[in-house]
Amino acid sequence: MVIQPRKRRRAPRGSGDLLRDQILDATTELLLETGHAKAVSIRSVAQRVGVTPPSIYLHFADKDALLDAVCSRYFEKLDEEMQRVAADQPSTIEVLRAQGHAYVNFARRTPELYRLATMGEGRPGSDVDTALNSSAFQHMRAAMEALIAEGVYPPGDATMLALELWTAAHGVAAILISKPYLPWGDVEEFTDRVLRAVCTGQIVSGIIGTDLEPMETIARLKGLADEFADGGKP
C-alpha cells in the first residue's frame, strides 16, 4: 500500500496543538484503512500529514504513545455518544441501558479502532487507562451509584457493578464484530436482551438475595410469580 504524503505549508508559531490533532487524525485514518496497528508506522503517519518523522516525535515519544493518544481520543468520542443518548432517558435504569446500547453501536461502527482500544496490549498508566478511568467508565459508575442511592439496586460496590455492565457490553460488541455471520437475528434486539438481563439482574438479586443456590433462586422467583398471579403481595 502506497501512502501518499500531503502537501503541507510550514505551520505558524503556536500551532503545535493543531499539528498534534492532524497527527492523530492521520493515524486514525491509517488504522481504519489498514485495519491493523502493525501496518501503521511513524514514517507513514508523517507522510500522510506532510511532515518529517522528527516532527511526530516532538509530540509523541514513540509509536505506542501515539496509539495510546488515538485510543484516548476514541474513548472521549465514545463517552460523548453515551452521554448524548443518556440525556433523553426518563430514568436512571434506562440511562444505563441506553449507554450500553450506545457503547455497542459505537464499537460496531468503528471496529478497527475498537479492537485497538479495548483488545490491544495495555500498559498501566497509559493514556488509554486514563481515558477508561475518567470518561465512559466513570459515567457508567456514576449511574450505578445513582441506582444504589435510589434504592433500585441493592447496596454494593459501584465500581464492580460498572465493570459487570462494561463486560457485558464489551462481550456483545466484540462477538458481533468478530463473528458477524452467526445467527444473531435482529442485532439491536439481541443487544437489548443481553443488556436488559444485566441491568435488571441486580434488581432481582436485591429482592431475592445473592446467596441462594440456582435452584433456590428459581423456586423463590416462581413463588413470587405465583403470588402476583393470585393477586397477592410478595
Rank of each mutant, 00 (worst) to 15 (best):
A65H: 03
A146N: 09
W166M: 10
V172I: 13
D17E: 15
V85N: 02
A107V: 08
P214D: 08
L176K: 05
L96A: 05
T52N: 06
A107S: 11
A197N: 09
R115A: 07
A149G: 05
Q47I: 07
M160V: 13
S135E: 04
R141L: 10
R193K: 15
G100P: 01
Q47H: 06
R196A: 15
H36P: 01
F60G: 05
E150C: 12
S205W: 07
I207Y: 11
L163K: 05
S135C: 08
P90D: 11
L67K: 01
K63P: 03
R20K: 15
L67H: 00
A11N: 07
I93H: 06
A142R: 13
V51A: 07
G122P: 03
T167D: 10
A146Q: 15
A131L: 08
Y74L: 02
E145P: 09
F106C: 08
Q99H: 03
D129F: 11
R115G: 07
V95M: 06
E189V: 10
L24A: 04
M140A: 03
S55K: 07
A117N: 10
A107C: 13
L116K: 05
A26R: 07
F60H: 00
E227V: 12
N105C: 04
L116Y: 04
L224H: 10
M140Q: 09
P5W: 13
A26G: 14
G14C: 13
G171R: 10
A11G: 09
V194S: 01
K77D: 11
E150R: 09
D64N: 02
T110C: 02
T52W: 03
R13Y: 14
Y103P: 05
R6G: 04
